[in-house]
Computed example of a mutant assay.
Amino acid sequence: MSITGKKWVRAAALCALVLSVGACGLPRSGPTKSELLADSNSPINDAIVVLVNDQVNRATAVTPSLGFSKAFSNAPLVGSDTIQPGDTLGISIWENVDTGILTTAGAPAALEEVQVDGSGFIFIPYAGRIKASGNSPEAIRRIITAKLAEQTPDPQVLVRRLAGDGSTVTITGAVSGQGVYPIERPTRTLNAMLARAGGIAISPEIAKIKVNRGSQTGEVWFQDLFDHPETNIALRGGDRILVEEDSRSYTAIGATGGQSRVRFETQNLSAMEALAQVGGLSGSSADPKGIFVLRDETADIANTVLGRSDLRGTQRMVYVLNLTEPNGMFKARDFTIRDGDTIYVTEAPYVQWTKLLSALTGSLATAGSISSLNQSLSGSGT
């Protein structure tokens, strides 16, 4: 065979090798940008691809709306002097005689712990059963005085409200001291009660406070207690307070510094911050023109983004960020990531060529080794 013929044979063999390597399917982290955009134009595809701009950022900037209803916000502070079932009272009685019905030699009769029963009553010797719930200590003092005055001259009565077992709240979750706490004068509001429990035990930026009151539930960010004083509601007996960490998360895959499911670290998270949380873009493989955010969007937002009104139900949306545009990084900074989002960073086009060349070089080296081995074996056999 001539030299030219041999060259053509080698060229054909090389082409066949390239095609075979490409056909084998080189490993990669996912579809390329061109593949995703091509699939989005398919008539059978149900995802809508949108290039992110300022209008898209405004339409999609939806953050969780937390807060208390008017039933919570308008409730007044619990009166520190109002007695309720379960409260404990301290009662002292003096009689204006040397030998009285309850006292002797001027010493007071001390009833240190008198608990209000479930029906709201207490029992005082010689005064009988007295309605305590709904009354203030002063009102109870007058009732006891009037009843004892019928049996002893000019009795002197002192009534004190001790820690109210009936007016308590339960605090659980990420606090320093979980437990049941009485509502007292210094702890009649939500923030004060949390402080009484030792404060929260997680980062304030991602702490949520949930209050259950009967069949009603309200929830606020911990920081709202300071930024919005109206959220520092008055507590009621039986309130259940739960402090928990924000459970929102997103998934980062593709050519990023780390691929994982990631929890939110702040109340509001931008695409740029989300990428930073996973180590940013991979410097050796990421395509800054192909950053995709996959999301199930509500029909209202999807219609606003697309300038339509005919969409119904949840829509699969794919938002595309291009960091190489003049304002690309600003758009990524302003794009809000939401709970359940998937961020996919595509590989740069040259990465596949690099992998192909690497695989091809390895294949040629293997072929060369085999050829040398065959020649060696042939030489040995002659």
Rank of each mutant, 00 (worst) to 15 (best):
S20F: 14
S247Q: 15
V114K: 07
N374I: 15
R236K: 15
G128I: 01
W353P: 08
M329C: 00
V9T: 11
P204R: 08
V345L: 11
A75N: 09
T168D: 00
V157M: 01
V262Y: 01
G238M: 03
F121V: 07
Q223A: 12
G328D: 01
L51C: 06
G166N: 09
K70T: 14
A299Q: 06
G307R: 06
Y319I: 01
P108H: 03
D224F: 05
S260Q: 15
Q216C: 13
A348P: 00
L148W: 01
S40Y: 07
S285N: 10
P186E: 11
S358F: 13
T168M: 08
A146R: 13
L26Y: 02
F123M: 10
G5D: 06
E184R: 09
G199W: 01
T187F: 15
N74G: 07
A276E: 13
R316L: 04
V305W: 00
G86F: 10
A348K: 12
N232Q: 05
A252N: 05
T346R: 09
Q277I: 07
T382R: 15
R236T: 11
G254F: 10
A255E: 11
D300N: 12
G340M: 06
Y350G: 04
D224T: 08
L66K: 03
A332Q: 00
G179H: 02
R58H: 12
S363F: 12
S358M: 11
R141Y: 03
Y181V: 05
F123I: 14
E325Y: 04
H228Y: 13
C24K: 13
N96P: 00
G258K: 13
R248N: 02
A195I: 07
R196V: 08
A197H: 04
E273L: 13
Q178W: 06
S34F: 10
E205M: 02
S119W: 08
L377R: 14
I202R: 03
T104L: 14
R161C: 00
T342D: 02
L377W: 13
L364H: 10
R338L: 02
I343M: 05
S358Y: 10
L323Q: 03
A192N: 07
D39V: 10
A365Q: 12
G22F: 14
D98L: 15
A16Y: 02
T304Y: 01
L377M: 11
G166Y: 06
C15E: 14
R129C: 03
N232R: 00
T256C: 13
S380W: 12
L162T: 08
I253S: 09
R160H: 10
G79R: 12
S176E: 14
G313L: 05
A201M: 00
T4C: 08
E347H: 04
Q156E: 10
Q178S: 15
E347A: 02
Q55N: 14
F292W: 00
D287C: 05
I233S: 09
A16H: 02
R236C: 09
L311V: 07
A61D: 15
R263E: 08
D296A: 10
E205H: 09
V62C: 02
S65H: 15
G106L: 13
T103M: 03
G5N: 10
M317W: 00
V114N: 06
D287F: 04
